Deep mutational scan, measured.
Amino acid sequence: NQASVVANQLIPISTHLTLVMMRSEVVTPVGIPAEDIPRLVSMQVNRAVPLGTTLMPDMVKGYA
């Protein structure tokens, strides 16, 4: 099972991601792979992401 990136807190819209905001967890459905966490740092979310939500490629500007 592959770990995905999950929000560690509420991430407001247009926030630049930091390591503190993300954790890796095995979830269904599978989202952005956990090994991409370093790549996600300083990218922006294009919507509010609630605590515990799996980050999907379409939620992060410039990821997909």
Rank of each mutant, 00 (worst) to 15 (best):
N1E: 15
N1Y: 15
N1M: 15
N1R: 05
N1F: 12
N1S: 15
N1V: 15
N1W: 14
N1A: 15
N1H: 12
N1C: 07
Q2E: 15
Q2N: 14
Q2W: 11
Q2C: 12
Q2V: 10
Q2K: 08
A3Q: 11
A3N: 08
A3P: 12
A3D: 08
A3H: 09
A3I: 07
S4Q: 01
S4H: 01
S4G: 04
S4N: 02
S4Y: 04
S4A: 02
S4M: 02
S4R: 02
S4D: 03
V5K: 01
V5E: 00
V5Q: 01
V5Y: 02
V5L: 03
V6K: 03
V6M: 04
V6W: 03
V6T: 06
V6R: 03
V6S: 02
V6P: 00
V6G: 00
V6F: 02
A7W: 03
A7E: 01
A7I: 04
A7M: 04
A7T: 09
N8M: 06
N8F: 04
N8H: 06
N8D: 11
N8C: 11
N8I: 05
N8L: 04
Q9N: 05
Q9L: 13
Q9I: 11
L10P: 10
L10F: 13
L10H: 12
L10R: 11
L10V: 11
L10K: 14
L10S: 15
L10M: 13
L10D: 14
I11F: 02
I11C: 03
I11D: 00
I11Y: 03
I11K: 01
P12L: 06
P12G: 07
P12Y: 05
P12R: 09
P12H: 09
P12C: 05
P12D: 09
I13A: 15
I13Y: 15
I13E: 15
I13F: 14
I13V: 14
I13T: 12
I13P: 11
I13K: 11
I13L: 12
I13N: 12
S14W: 15
S14R: 11
S14Y: 14
S14N: 15
S14I: 04
S14H: 15
S14C: 10
S14A: 14
S14P: 01
T15F: 09
T15E: 08
T15D: 03
T15I: 06
H16V: 11
H16T: 14
H16N: 09
H16I: 14
H16G: 07
H16C: 15
L17C: 03
L17P: 00
L17Y: 02
L17N: 00
L17M: 06
L17W: 02
L17F: 01
T18I: 05
T18C: 05
T18R: 09
T18G: 04
T18W: 03
L19G: 05
L19T: 07
L19M: 14
L19R: 13
L19F: 14
L19S: 07
V20R: 14
V20A: 15
V20H: 15
V20K: 14
V20N: 10
V20L: 15
V20W: 14
M21Y: 05
M21W: 02
M21Q: 04
M21D: 04
M21T: 03
M21F: 03
M21R: 00
M21G: 00
M22P: 00
M22W: 03
M22K: 00
M22H: 01
M22E: 01
M22F: 05
M22Q: 00
M22N: 00
R23Y: 05
R23F: 04
R23I: 06
R23E: 04
S24W: 08
S24E: 12
S24C: 08
S24F: 06
S24M: 09
E25T: 06
E25F: 07
E25C: 11
E25V: 10
E25M: 13
E25D: 09
E25S: 09
E25Q: 13
V26F: 14
V26S: 10
V26A: 09
V26I: 13
V26P: 08
V26C: 11
V27Q: 05
V27M: 07
V27L: 04
V27H: 04
V27E: 03
V27F: 02
V27T: 13
T28F: 11
T28E: 15
T28L: 08
T28K: 07
T28C: 10
P29I: 06
P29A: 04
P29Q: 05
P29M: 05
P29N: 05
P29K: 05
V30C: 13
V30D: 11
V30F: 11
G31A: 03
G31Y: 02
G31K: 00
G31L: 02
G31W: 03
G31I: 00
G31T: 01
I32E: 02
I32M: 03
I32H: 02
I32L: 05
I32C: 05
I32G: 01
P33A: 14
P33T: 07
P33M: 06
P33L: 08
P33G: 06
P33C: 15
P33Y: 06
P33Q: 06
P33W: 10
P33F: 09
P33D: 06
A34L: 03
A34G: 15
A34M: 08
A34T: 09
E35K: 08
E35R: 07
E35P: 07
E35N: 12
D36N: 13
D36M: 12
D36S: 10
I37K: 06
I37Y: 03
I37T: 07
I37S: 03
I37D: 00
I37C: 05
I37E: 01
I37Q: 05
P38K: 10
P38D: 13
R39I: 08
R39D: 06
R39Y: 11
R39L: 10
R39Q: 10
R39C: 12
R39A: 10
R39G: 08
L40I: 10
L40V: 05
L40K: 00
L40W: 03
L40D: 00
L40F: 01
L40H: 01
V41D: 03
V41K: 04
V41H: 03
V41C: 06
V41T: 05
V41I: 10
V41Q: 06
S42P: 00
M43I: 04
M43V: 04
M43K: 08
M43S: 05
M43N: 04
M43D: 04
M43W: 06
Q44P: 05
Q44E: 11
Q44V: 14
Q44N: 04
Q44Y: 11
Q44H: 08
Q44K: 10
V45L: 09
V45C: 06
V45W: 02
V45P: 01
V45M: 06
V45G: 02
V45R: 00
N46F: 06
N46P: 02
N46W: 08
N46E: 08
R47I: 09
R47Y: 09
R47D: 06
R47K: 11
R47F: 07
R47T: 10
R47G: 05
A48N: 15
A48V: 14
A48R: 11
A48L: 14
A48P: 09
A48Q: 13
V49I: 12
V49L: 08
V49W: 04
V49M: 05
V49S: 02
V49F: 03
P50A: 12
P50F: 08
P50E: 09
P50K: 11
P50N: 11
P50S: 13
P50W: 05
L51S: 13
L51D: 11
L51N: 13
L51Q: 13
L51A: 14
L51E: 15
L51W: 11
G52L: 04
G52K: 02
G52W: 04
G52S: 07
G52M: 04
G52R: 04
T53D: 13
T53S: 10
T53L: 12
T53H: 14
T53M: 11
T53P: 01
T53W: 14
T53V: 14
T54D: 02
T54K: 04
T54L: 04
T54V: 10
T54A: 06
T54R: 03
L55T: 01
L55N: 01
L55E: 02
L55V: 07
L55I: 12
L55M: 11
M56L: 11
M56W: 05
M56Y: 10
M56D: 05
M56F: 09
M56A: 07
M56G: 04
P57F: 07
P57E: 07
P57W: 08
P57D: 05
P57A: 10
P57S: 08
P57Q: 07
P57I: 05
P57M: 07
D58V: 09
D58K: 08
D58M: 11
D58W: 14
D58H: 10
M59A: 08
M59G: 03
M59C: 06
M59Q: 04
V60N: 02
V60L: 07
V60M: 04
V60Y: 02
V60I: 11
V60A: 02
V60E: 02
K61H: 14
K61E: 13
K61R: 15
K61G: 08
K61S: 12
K61N: 12
K61P: 09
G62M: 09
G62L: 08
G62E: 08
G62K: 07
Y63N: 03
Y63R: 04
Y63D: 03
Y63P: 04
Y63V: 04
Y63Q: 03
A64G: 12
A64F: 07
A64M: 15
A64L: 14
A64H: 13
A64Y: 06
